[in-house]
């Protein structure tokens, strides 16, 4: 009597009977088949339900309002225009060719441009010695290619202090030379003093410090 457990694959056959025949109209074999699954009362109720549902389906039938389609058409147009902006009709092979040309041209530009040294520190450090020439030390990064070229030319490239080059201040920097001379004069003056003097009263030393710093 229970179709859920006996067989659920017979629904098609049962539905066909429910749609088309009342219980009394079934053949004895069909009645027996149904009786193994449903009572006569259950069959009659289900048959009635199927009939009513068929009628009911036809009775409820609504149409969509026009404004829905209009809204969708606008959305479609917006999508199409958005696609149009980004869609370029350029074949793939042309795009690839352009990319290759661009790559080589870009590489060529780099080949013909001289490599430039890059200053690591923008601030130069000036070291002033009282007994030696004033030097300006500038830290620069020397590319490997240039370094090798310099070696080939016989120029000295400092390896230990990699990327650091010391360069002297040109002699025509008269201000530094003048300060150097003053400093040296003051030192000689102190060295030649017979009696000596205290640090506070040592005006020469003070002058020298002021000059140096």
């Amino acid at each position: 009597m229970n179709m859920e457990t006996t067989s659920n694959t017979d629904l098609d056959k049962l539905e066909e009977m429910l749609h088309n025949k009342m219980f009394d109209e079934l053949s004895p074999a069909d009645k027996q088949w149904v009786a193994n699954r449903l009572s006569e009362e259950e069959y009659t109720s289900m048959s009635a339900l199927y009939t009513v549902l068929k009628v009911q389906k036809q009775s409820i039938d609504i149409e969509p309002h026009e404004y829905i389609k209009n809204k969708l058409d606008k959305a479609f147009a917006a999508k199409a225009s958005h696609k149009g902006v980004f869609r370029l009709n350029i074949p793939l092979y042309q795009t690839a060719a352009a990319a290759i040309i661009f790559f080589f041209v870009g590489s060529g530009v780099n080949v013909f441009q001289p490599e430039q040294t890059k200053v690591i520190h923008t601030t130069s450090q000036v070291i002033k010695y009282v007994d030696r020439p004033v030097k300006l030390i500038q830290y620069v990064k020397i590319p490997v290619q240039i370094k090798e070229k310099q070696k080939e030319k016989g120029n000295k490239v400092i390896q230990a202090t990699d990327n650091i080059v010391n360069s002297g201040i040109p002699e025509f920097n008269s201000e530094y030379l003048r300060q150097q001379e003053i400093a040296m004069t003051n030192i000689n003056h102190v060295l030649n003093e017979q009696n000596g003097s205290s640090m506070g009263g040592d005006t020469v030393l003070q002058k020298m410090l002021v000059t140096v710093y």
Binding site: N8, S45, V52
Partner: peptide, 26 residues
């Protein structure tokens, strides 16, 4: 498919019981 058939059968059986009152001849 078996699950669908089983559920449909159970559902229509339940509904027919509940709604039979709407068909006087039932």
């Amino acid at each position: 498919e078996g699950t669908i058939k089983s559920r449909l059968f159970y559902l229509t059986k339940q509904l027919s019981k509940k709604l039979s009152v709407y068909k006087p001849e039932l």
